[in-house]
Design a protein around this nucleic acid. Structure first.
Lengths: 155, 155
DNA sequence: GCTTGACTTAGAGCGCGCTCGAACCCTTAG
DNA sequence: CTAAGGGTTCGAGCGCGCTCTAAGTCAAGC
């Protein structure tokens, strides 16, 4: 299978596939006699799993870690498991946050009743810690040692 | 309330608060005699709501739209409502996706049984459309006309 | 033989949402 | 009077995850 075909089947662009190979998320592809990438269909399974990790907000560096462990063979399975378990917890937490926010949205929408009854705005329902951007929530939970230590802001 | 105090109470940094004001997410703050921002506690309610929108993945440009509508008075309420309703749907869809992915994770983790029983890898459970990165899912649903038309790639 | 078009590489550029630095201003405590 | 410590503006820089350009190679169809 050529890269174009894989792109079609995976939903990634050829550019992205090459990028993933470059950074190590995908194994270096076999080449045909003309040095073009020639894929086995089995790669789709891996790409699909990567898609799940991405869809759940795992940063590339963590997917990379998982990919490396995978390449390291069966001995790394316990660690891979731990990695996924930690990630699962992060995702669960995120789902909880989203559901919490949905309640707020519901309340707010109800405030804009029927076609317009109340003028009330700004009502905060269900207060809870905010500004914990979910895009980074996973990282924060999973990253242990950052390369350049961040100032550990109070927040 | 000075910006530092607001930062402490809201969980944002002073830098971010100024940035939000600059782009229009926060109304221009009143200044004291020394031209320093002086906030009323009521701003916290708005920041908290913005936090909810952010936590649910709404891009800043949409929050901005909402903020503009809000400034436009009661006449804009129906549109504000529609905006929130659309967003709510996007969030619900995201929750569904995450839950779907959680099932896959559960299966994968179960595959790395007890402390190590199977060597099985790569098992794709519960296949479904992937590579629909949630970070952008909301935008795609909500954006109507993009400034520079994107090539509308097949994907 | 020539065109078409999918492929190759290296590397630059982009959109997002901050985040920070520089240089300066003002107030307050000692 | 001085120094600390918060505030101000403007604009540059960053981390992420792509996304695209340029210049070239190769193979198949007419």
């Amino acid at each position: 299978m050529k890269i174009g075909e894989l792109a079609r089947q995976s939903g990634l662009t050829a550019h992205t596939i090459r990028y993933y190979e470059r950074i190590g998320l995908l194994p270096r592809a076999d080449r045909d006699h003309a040095r073009r990438r020639d894929y086995d269909a089995s790669i789709l399974t891996w790409i699909e799993f990567l898609g799940r990790l991405k869809a759940t907000g795992m940063p590339i560096r963590d997917m990379l870690r998982y990919a490396e462990l995978r390449a390291g063979g069966a001995a790394t399975e316990p660690e891979r498991r731990r990695l996924l378990e930690r990630h699962r917890e992060a995702v669960r937490a995120r789902v909880a946050t989203l559901q919490d926010c949905l309640l707020v949205l519901d309340g707010k929408i109800a405030g804009y009743a029927g076609s317009s009854e109340r003028t009330n705005d700004d009502d905060a329902i269900n207060p809870r810690p905010i500004h914990d951007d979910e895009r980074h929530a996973v990282q924060r939970q999973q990253r242990s040692g950052s390369p350049v230590a961040r100032p550990a802001r109070a927040r």
